[in-house]
Structures are given as structure tokens and as C-alpha cells.
Simulated assay, not measured.
Amino acid sequence: MMSHTGTELQSFHNRYQSEQDCMEALIAMKWPSGFICPRCNHTGCSRLSSRRIPLFECGRCKHQTSALVGTIFEGTRLPLLKWFIALDLFLLPDGISATRLCQVIDVTYKTAWLMLHKIRHAALYFDARELLYGDVKVNSDQYGRNPSRCTVSHPHASAVVAGCTVDEAGEPQQVIIRLVPQSRGTDKKAARRDLTAFIDEHVDRLSSDVGLFPQAFRLYTPLRNVVREAWKSLTSTYGALELKHLQAYLSEYTGRRWLRLSETEESMGQKLLKMCVTVPRISYRQLIARQCNPSLAAVA
């Protein structure tokens, strides 16, 4: 039995009331213009609905597939309803911890942890491919400083490069935060080559005016505030985070922030679902084998 508070899932239950609702939403997201065979690109098919997860058989090559293949949901034994609840709660202003999620949808902690990390994997995948353009600011900063003591570093703070687009008022819109390799410690900071690598990977140079702020004492303040807000938000929900998975959590924060800033509540969920359907499956072993400190280039 799933336990939850009414306010957390009220909007969810207005959209998805059954396993069938979730499956049809997934099929529509997987093939928005109708079925396309992944093997021969034929568009004709037969739907085989005798199983819990419907199969689609190509009318030409007879290849069978499902809407879950090639997504983060592939191979799951959980009801899609639980996955969709997890997606909905993932979009809460400060996200949701695995400890809380396992209580809400009645699964083990390990299962809840894996579900959330698969969703983060989708967010990281898309975050790494987004390009900033227009009026862009780039800071050399540290994640993990106490926001109320900005001049005091911390032995477990991590050097980051943060970039954003800004509106006419100078406020950050889309934000990307990238960890700098081997950068945890009080005296660690991003070098100029790290800022250059960030710009090469995440900024559309041809359509951007880039403001670079490489000095810790002279950063673009609104962007620095976003990094501090990320620290406060992630700490309040997850506590201390391992460096091994920190980049995924940072991408979760920036991705959710951008969705909440630019999308309606319903379209946020649709866009997150699209990410999860587009990104190939990742196994538990692959998740736990992530390098502790990937290079800026390796993130993409």
C-alpha cells in the first residue's frame, strides 16, 4: 500500500489514475507520430496486449518490442504507476530522498535509490548536451561553502565551474554547474583551462557574449547565489553527498530549476518523461561504477 500526504500527489492523481494511463502516456511519448520499428523503420504493427507490458510486432520484419525498450524503464518489474509517482515527486522544489520515496511508494530503500538515480541519469544526460547562448556568465566557484559565510571555505567544498544565461535584468535563467576534476578541499579552485573547457562544451560561442569571472573574490553574484541555493536545497533533502554522485545531484538541481522556471506544472512532467524515454537504460552496476571525479569533457 502506498503511503503519502494528499498535497504531494494530488496533481498526479488528476493525470494518472491507473497502470493503463501510465502505459498509454509512455507509448505516446515513445512514438508521438505512431509506431516505428527500431529494426527496419516500418510503421505498421500489431499490438499484443496479452502481457502486462504490451508488445508491438512489426508488420514487415516481425520484430517485437515494447515502449519500455531503450528507456530507463527497460527491465523494470515495478508497476509504472510507482515510476510515475517518483517522477512527479522528483519535481518537487527540493526533490525527494530515497528514504522518503521508499515510504511513499512502498519499495525497499535500494529500489528507491536506484529509481531516483536512473531519473538523475536522464537529467544529467540532457544537461550535458544543453548549450548556453545569448548573454552568458561563467564563474569559477566552490560548491559546499556555508551560504552565510561566503568568505570561509570548507575542507569538503568542491571546485565547480558554473555558467548561466541571463535575462534583461541580469537574473540567471538556464544554469549549468560542472565539478572540476580532483577538486575537493579548501584550497581547490577551477583553473582557467577548466573555464575554457566548460565554455567549449556548454556554450554556443557563435551566438553568445560570454562574461568570464575567474576570480573567487570577483564573481557574478546572481550566479554565485544559484550555486549557494543548490547547496542549501540538496543539503536539506539529501544531507552530505558523496563526490562520486555529486555531479548527478547538481544536474538534478539545475534541471529541475530550469523546468520550474520555464514550464507549467503539467509540461514539466511531460518534459521529464521525455528525458526518461529518450535516454537508454543504465544498470545498477553502471551507476555505482561511476568515476568519482569525471573530467569536464567526460561528463558529456
Rank of each mutant, 00 (worst) to 15 (best):
1 M>P: 13
2 M>L: 05
6 G>Q: 11
6 G>L: 11
12 F>K: 05
15 R>G: 04
17 Q>K: 13
20 Q>T: 12
22 C>M: 10
25 A>Y: 02
28 A>F: 10
28 A>L: 15
29 M>Y: 02
33 S>M: 05
35 F>T: 01
37 C>A: 03
40 C>Q: 05
41 N>D: 06
41 N>A: 09
43 T>A: 09
47 R>E: 13
52 R>L: 12
52 R>K: 15
52 R>H: 05
54 P>E: 07
54 P>D: 09
55 L>G: 02
58 C>Q: 04
60 R>M: 00
62 K>F: 15
62 K>C: 09
67 A>N: 02
69 V>C: 12
70 G>K: 09
80 L>A: 05
81 L>D: 07
82 K>N: 10
84 F>R: 02
87 L>P: 04
88 D>Y: 15
88 D>L: 01
89 L>E: 04
91 L>C: 10
92 L>E: 07
93 P>M: 14
95 G>H: 12
95 G>A: 03
101 L>K: 08
101 L>Q: 08
103 Q>F: 05
103 Q>Y: 01
105 I>T: 10
105 I>Q: 08
106 D>F: 03
108 T>W: 09
109 Y>F: 15
121 H>D: 09
123 A>I: 15
128 A>D: 13
128 A>R: 14
128 A>P: 06
132 L>G: 04
135 D>Y: 12
139 N>D: 14
143 Y>H: 00
143 Y>S: 02
146 N>M: 06
148 S>P: 03
148 S>Q: 11
152 V>I: 14
153 S>P: 06
154 H>T: 11
159 A>I: 13
160 V>N: 03
160 V>I: 03
163 G>P: 06
163 G>N: 08
167 D>S: 03
169 A>E: 10
170 G>F: 02
170 G>D: 08
170 G>C: 04
173 Q>D: 08
175 V>F: 08
175 V>T: 09
175 V>Y: 12
176 I>C: 06
176 I>V: 14
178 R>I: 00
179 L>T: 10
182 Q>V: 00
187 D>A: 15
191 A>L: 09
191 A>Y: 07
192 R>K: 10
192 R>F: 11
198 F>G: 07
198 F>S: 10
204 D>M: 12
206 L>I: 00
206 L>T: 11
206 L>Q: 12
207 S>G: 08
207 S>N: 11
208 S>C: 10
208 S>T: 07
209 D>H: 14
209 D>S: 13
211 G>H: 12
215 Q>E: 00
216 A>R: 12
216 A>Y: 11
217 F>L: 02
218 R>N: 08
222 P>M: 01
222 P>H: 03
222 P>D: 03
224 R>C: 01
226 V>L: 07
231 W>T: 00
232 K>E: 13
233 S>W: 11
233 S>A: 15
237 T>H: 07
238 Y>L: 10
242 E>F: 11
243 L>E: 11
244 K>Y: 03
245 H>I: 06
247 Q>I: 05
250 L>W: 07
252 E>K: 10
252 E>P: 04
253 Y>A: 02
253 Y>I: 01
254 T>R: 01
255 G>I: 07
263 E>K: 13
263 E>G: 00
267 S>F: 03
267 S>W: 02
268 M>K: 11
270 Q>G: 09
273 L>H: 03
274 K>N: 14
274 K>T: 15
276 C>V: 00
281 R>S: 13
283 S>K: 07
286 Q>P: 00
286 Q>A: 06
286 Q>S: 04
286 Q>I: 05
288 I>A: 02
296 L>V: 07
300 A>V: 15
